[in-house]
């Protein structure tokens, strides 16, 4: 029987390697899929405005989805959706996670680090300061994502466009992200017993990372391309 400490060690030693392999395989398969199609350079007439300006505009003032189109119909989903994405990015960019990623990246190359506990670690404070990130941003993220999951459940019971669009995958991606976030929150606020929750958080987080390139979560990467291209297009067409 594995005891908790062994599982905890596994989540910081072997599992990150598995995660990395599965993640990279997913990325490679995705890139192969894209590369199997052509990326033609279309001849277009001279654009009405500069493409770069179009892209910048699309990444700044046009970033917020138009209220007139979506907001007036589903204001709650609109505000909640934006809040969820903003807080998610803030959490992922939080110091703790930046350091975790650093550790994962270093793992295969630096054996000495293999045994360095990620959390709590010598270079990372054991107890994260009870900051804005913990007590404001994370609860907002969890509640907004929770609302979006409940919205999908509600719409699936009631019927409507969201029901017609829902696929099995939708019941995995968002709940997985929410679970990873929730266990992370509990681990940070040090709910006792601390270790099982932290272990669960590490497992869920790595499951999320493994799942990312195979699922609709890939939009977290493709959005950079799509928004830039649509910015180019809008500049060319002058719209």
């Amino acid at each position: 029987m594995l005891d908790l400490m062994q599982i905890f060690d596994f989540t910081r030693s072997v599992l990150p390697l598995v995660t990395l392999v599965v993640f990279i395989t997913g990325v490679m398969l995705r890139l192969t899929k894209w590369a199997s199609l052509s990326f033609p350079r279309h001849d277009r007439p001279r654009g009405k405005s500069n493409r770069l300006i179009g892209a910048i505009k699309n990444w700044s003032i046009d970033m917020i989805p138009p209220w007139d189109l979506a907001g007036r119909v589903e204001p709650v989903a609109y505000v909640v959706g934006i809040a969820m994405h903003v807080t998610c990015i803030l959490i992922l960019l939080g110091a703790l996670h930046a350091a975790s990623v650093q550790n994962i990246i270093d793992l295969p190359f630096t054996q000495s680090r293999l045994r360095l506990p990620m959390i709590p670690a010598s270079n990372i404070p054991v107890a994260i300061p009870r900051t804005l990130l913990t007590y404001v941003i994370t609860p907002i993220f969890l509640s907004t994502l929770g609302i979006l999951i409940l919205r999908r459940v509600y719409c699936n019971l009631r019927g409507g466009p969201l029901k017609a669009l829902t696929r099995k995958e939708d019941w995995v991606a968002a709940p997985l992200l929410w679970s990873a976030g929730f266990t992370g929150f509990l681990a940070v606020v040090a709910v006792e017993p601390h270790m099982p929750i932290l272990t669960l958080h590490l497992i869920l987080t790595q499951a999320f990372i493994m799942y990312l390139p195979y699922s609709k979560l890939i939009h977290s990467a493709t959005v950079f391309l799509v928004r830039t291209w649509s910015g180019f297009r809008r500049a060319i067409y002058g719209v």
Partner: peptide
């Protein structure tokens, strides 16, 4: 008839129904 740009656009859809 399908090119890579279009495929990436398609794969970005998260089925939010907005």
């Amino acid at each position: 008839k399908l090119d890579g740009y279009e495929l990436i656009n398609m794969e970005t859809c998260t089925r939010c129904a907005v």
